[in-house]
Amino acid sequence: MLDKILCVDDDLITLMICRKVAERVEFAKEIITANNGEEALQYFDSLFEEKKSNDTLIYPKLVFLDLNMPVMDGWEFLESYITRDYQNVFNLTRFIVVSSSIDPYDINKSKTYPVIGFLSKPITKEMLENLKTQMSLNKKSTH
């Protein structure tokens, strides 16, 4: 089980589903949500400030990220995240794109970011159980 995940989507129902499914499969102890990339970036900004005085800060190791959102979309968020050099500060955080359409262009573009996969909406119990199993196998192989 992860300590903390972040779900970023402008659709409140999708956020609710992400939260409920993650709770049901005991995917994470804490599930944070953001309504767009800007809110997610503000969340990481606040974590960055807090990390300066708290070296043991618990931050999300996994972010479920929608691409098409108002205010700041997923690509703009990822670009800002990298520009701020957060991938070095929060070096264990990885991203999974959650989209209603899986476009090959987006899949290829994601390879330039710390995106580890794509899921189609809505997130299901089976998807998270499979992901949980994959993450457990990966974790075991790194010890």
Rank of each mutant, 00 (worst) to 15 (best):
M127Y: 03
I96T: 06
S141R: 14
R94A: 01
I32W: 02
E23L: 08
V8F: 03
V21I: 14
K140V: 11
S101L: 04
N35Q: 08
K132F: 12
F118S: 02
S100A: 11
L65F: 09
E39P: 05
S141M: 15
M1F: 05
T14C: 12
S53M: 08
V21D: 10
I123W: 06
K4P: 00
F95K: 04
T83C: 04
T14I: 06
E39W: 06
M127K: 09
K132E: 09
Y86E: 04
V89S: 07
V21K: 14
S53K: 11
L137F: 12
D45C: 07
F95W: 03
E126D: 15
L67H: 13
R94H: 08
L15D: 03
V63I: 11
G74H: 11
G37W: 12
L57E: 03
K109M: 12
P114M: 11
F90N: 06
I5G: 05
E79Y: 05
Y43V: 09
L62T: 07
S136A: 15
L78E: 05
L41V: 03
D73L: 13
I96V: 12
N36E: 01
E50V: 00
S101C: 02
N130Q: 13
L137C: 00
K61I: 01
Y86L: 14
E129T: 12
V115P: 05
K132A: 08
I82E: 08
G74F: 12
V71K: 12
L137D: 07
T93N: 08
L137P: 00
D66E: 08
D10V: 01
K140W: 14
I82P: 00
L119T: 03
K29M: 07
K139N: 11
T93V: 03
T33L: 07
V89W: 04
Y105Q: 10
T112V: 09
P114Y: 09
S110I: 05
K111Y: 11
M72G: 01
D45P: 00
V71M: 12
L131R: 02
N91D: 12
F118V: 01
L67F: 12
A22N: 07
S80C: 11
Q87M: 10
E126T: 15
G74S: 12
E39K: 11
E126Q: 14
E30Y: 06
K109S: 10
L47E: 08
M69S: 10
S120E: 13
V115R: 04
E23K: 09
L78G: 00
A22G: 05
